[in-house]
Design a protein around this nucleic acid. Structure first.
Length: 273
DNA sequence: CGACAATGAAAAA
DNA sequence: TTTTCCTTGTCGC
């Protein structure tokens, strides 16, 4: 389940499992991607790429690259396993299978074969991604510093910054004591730089561990003598999905509200205007 | 077995 | 601002 760290991890995992493997079979058991799958069948995966929540699988020779563009949306899931691949269920949009491994993609918002220019156009409309080495955080600040929109909404806008989702949004604002309702243009450059640098660290850690942990060492369950979090998406967090529970730091009840069809979580004690 | 939620975003209105 | 798309797991009856 997908914020940017998941997608970058998938780019690594797809490459690790299948790159340059001439035994690669490409199918679409569900049927919605059959034509493209037939085209790619038995051609090696050349490279993978990720920008924000967009995943790209590169096929073909470098002069004429073809890309499978994948976006998981809210429900998309990817599962890896060793060969032999089990019979696919009828929801598998895309299966890659080699002599040694297989991977199934289910429920993506997007799974399409695109050209290099089309890929470039996607990069162009995305904001800087804390997980990409070429990212320019000033580009994000330029937009934020001119916007009357709340920082909570701006962090979710992929044109402003790519890869942050509902969990990282809530957690990074908490970690910096920032009221989610503050307007973007009221953020100082120093505040933005601190947020960005923090996201770089947190999301890299997310890629490494394949989960989101945002709690500082001094606030971990072990350090504070409280039971570890029990939650179906794993990861130790301060506010995400902790509605009405006491804040780990100040004890205030964590608040939640429906904002633009997503659940926003924050601590009214620690995050003041 | 239906209702509902879930780390998302584009299209329609 | 609302609707739509995509899938799966959980909860209550």
């Amino acid at each position: 389940m997908p914020e940017g760290h998941t997608i970058h991890r998938l780019a690594e995992d797809y490459a690790k499992a299948f790159r340059a493997d001439s035994s690669l079979r490409v199918t679409s058991p569900q049927g919605k991607f059959s034509d493209a799958a037939a085209l790619l069948d038995r051609t090696p995966l050349r490279t993978t790429d990720a920008h924000g929540k967009h995943l790209f699988l590169g096929f073909g020779d470098p002069g004429h690259p073809e890309w499978v563009h994948i976006h998981l949306g809210l429900f998309g899931k990817v599962t890896f396993g060793p060969a032999p691949a089990p019979p696919p269920t009828d929801t598998v949009r895309l299966r890659l299978a080699s002599d040694t491994a297989y991977v199934d993609l289910r429920g993506p918002t997007t799974c399409a074969l695109i050209t290099e220019p089309e890929k470039r156009a996607i990069h162009d409309r995305l904001g800087p991604d804390p997980l990409r080495p070429d990212a320019e955080p000033e580009r994000a600040y330029r937009r934020i510093s001119r916007s009357r929109t709340t920082i909570a909404a701006l962090l979710m806008d992929q044109k402003v910054i790519a890869g942050v989702g509902n969990v990282y949004r809530a957690e990074v604002l908490f970690r910096h004591g920032i009221d989610p309702y503050r307007a973007g243009r009221d953020l100082t450059r120093a505040e933005w730089d601190a947020i960005w640098d923090d996201l770089v660290v947190l999301m890299r850690e997310g890629v490494r561990n394949n989960r989101i942990d945002t709690v500082r060492p001094e606030h971990t369950p072990e350090a504070m003598g409280r039971p570890p979090r029990v939650d179906d998406h794993g990861g130790e967090v301060y506010v995400y999905r902790r509605a009405n529970l006491p804040c780990h730091i100040c004890g205030s009840g964590i608040r939640t509200v429906d904002l633009a069809a997503r659940n926003l979580f924050w601590c009214p004690g620690c995050q003041r205007a």
